[in-house]
Nucleic acid binder design. Structure first.
Lengths: 116, 116
DNA sequence: TATAGTGCTTTCCCAAAGGAAAGTGGAATA
DNA sequence: TATTCCACTTTCCTTTGGGAAAGCACTATA
């Protein structure tokens, strides 16, 4: 017999949501993906396009995103060496998440300012 | 004349996304919303439905969610006093976010296990 | 020759997140 | 009377995130 439980079961939703959150956690991952996705492919450009981000954090987050195969780092030989960042195709699958967050954020801001 | 900028502009997407992330930040907010949304309305039930959450964290996150008007705490007088939590209607607007995260998480887990 | 840009790294530091464990006060239950 | 349940709170501690500032190796530009 299964153990009785008073609470309603929701692990089947919570588990995948947490899997997703583990990948895109923190303040910076989605902003970086947005910035790279829009065409910023140089370290400095990405940095300047995201207000407040420091090079240390950007470097670390880019490495994380590479490991998760969402971003591809390319070294182009030549003088000087060029380094570019691009979204991996897999990052396209994040579009619905970004889209829904953007919409919600826009609506939320309106709601909060209306309140005041 | 506007200052020249080499980078592509993406603040209009980044800003609302960050507004949204500021509200649902951390490991626990969305799991809690999912749990309450599915019918868990007592503190202990919510706690037991979310693996790994401690009462301290749950109490703090519930307060945050109340402040953001996503969750409503109700005290029902009587002997003993009963306390229930429910989603505010506003929390329904999070459904697309949760849905897209869930889908992405499911797909991501498949992708990662296939890789191995 | 001096300065600026590129893509970072390094150090130092602080605050927030979060885990473990115990406790609390009242009421219900055995 | 003892134990349990409920909804937390409290304390202590560790980890993580992240900011500030400086530096570095290389190249390009003035």
């Amino acid at each position: 017999m299964a153990a009785k439980k008073a609470y309603c079961d929701c692990i089947e939703t919570i588990k995948p949501v947490r899997d997703a959150l583990d990948v895109i956690n923190g303040k910076w991952k989605l902003p970086i993906i947005i910035s790279v996705g829009v065409g910023n492919d140089r370290f400095t450009d990405i940095q300047e396009s995201i207000p407040g981000i420091t090079p240390k954090v950007l470097a670390k987050e880019l490495k994380d995103l590479e490991q998760h195969r969402l971003v591809v780092r390319t070294v182009i030989d030549g003088y000087p060496v060029k380094i570019t960042y691009q979204l991996a195709q897999y990052a396209d699958t994040l579009t619905p998440i970004i889209y829904s967050l953007k919409n919600w954020g826009l609506n939320h801001r309106k709601k909060v300012t209306d309140r005041a």
